[in-house]
Amino acid sequence: MINIVLFRPEIPQNTGNIGRTCVLTNARLHLIGPMGFSINDKTVSRAGLDYWSELDVTLYGSYEELREKYKDSKFYFSSTKGKKIHSEVEFEDEVFIVFGRESSGLPEYIMEENRENLFRVPMAETSTRSLNLSNTVAIVAYEALRQLGYPDMK
């Protein structure tokens, strides 16, 4: 099973879509606050449709709280500033894959502490900043699951 981590998400529809992806890929969702919305926001559940009640989701007050709880786990970090591309990462079972805020990505201190575990999803060079967060999560989650042989999926 993989673990998807959202660092201070801002857009409820993205979190709802990511929650739906997590349910359908048997992934756990970890949300680090503060968030830009309430988890009970109708737009979260609307985007997640009837899947939200099946979601394995945990809330954290800080990044440090998550890291302390899972101090022996492997973490990877998605950033447009990563040198490796997502398919070059060797994902393993129970891995934590961390994604930053929609507007600003991951904070510099997290990227500095984890420079070797940063990766990016390749994109064409355009004036557009980056892919939508829920699309990026889906791309990376399916690459991790492909590497693990799509466990418990038909």
Rank of each mutant, 00 (worst) to 15 (best):
I2N: 09
L6G: 05
L6D: 01
P9W: 07
E10I: 02
I11T: 05
Q13P: 10
N14H: 13
G16T: 11
G16E: 12
N17M: 11
G19D: 03
V23G: 07
V23C: 10
T25V: 04
N26K: 15
A27P: 10
G33I: 01
P34V: 11
P34S: 11
M35W: 09
M35V: 10
M35I: 11
G36H: 15
G36I: 08
G36P: 07
G36C: 08
K42W: 12
T43V: 12
S45G: 12
G48L: 07
L49T: 09
L49C: 03
D50A: 03
Y51I: 02
S53Q: 15
E54N: 14
E54H: 15
V57L: 07
L59D: 02
L59Q: 08
L59W: 09
Y63W: 15
E65A: 14
L66D: 05
E68V: 00
K69R: 11
K69N: 04
K69Y: 02
Y70K: 08
K71R: 14
F75G: 00
F75L: 01
F77E: 02
F77I: 04
S78L: 14
T80Q: 07
K81P: 03
K83E: 08
K84D: 11
I85C: 04
S87K: 11
S87Q: 12
E88G: 03
E88H: 02
E90L: 09
E90Q: 13
F91T: 06
F91Y: 15
D93R: 14
V95S: 07
F96K: 13
I97W: 06
I97Y: 05
G100A: 04
E102A: 06
S103Y: 10
P107G: 11
E108A: 14
E108M: 08
Y109N: 15
E113C: 06
N114E: 03
R115A: 13
R115I: 13
E116A: 04
N117P: 00
V121K: 12
P122H: 06
P122C: 06
M123P: 00
A124Q: 14
A124P: 01
T126Q: 08
T126F: 03
S127C: 10
T128E: 10
L131C: 04
L131N: 06
L131F: 11
L133N: 07
L133E: 03
L133G: 00
S134V: 02
V137M: 05
V137W: 06
V137Q: 07
A138N: 15
I139A: 05
A141V: 13
A141G: 09
E143W: 07
A144I: 07
L145C: 05
L145G: 08
R146M: 13
Y150I: 09
P151S: 10
D152L: 09
D152Q: 11
K154P: 10
K154M: 13
K154N: 14
K154T: 08
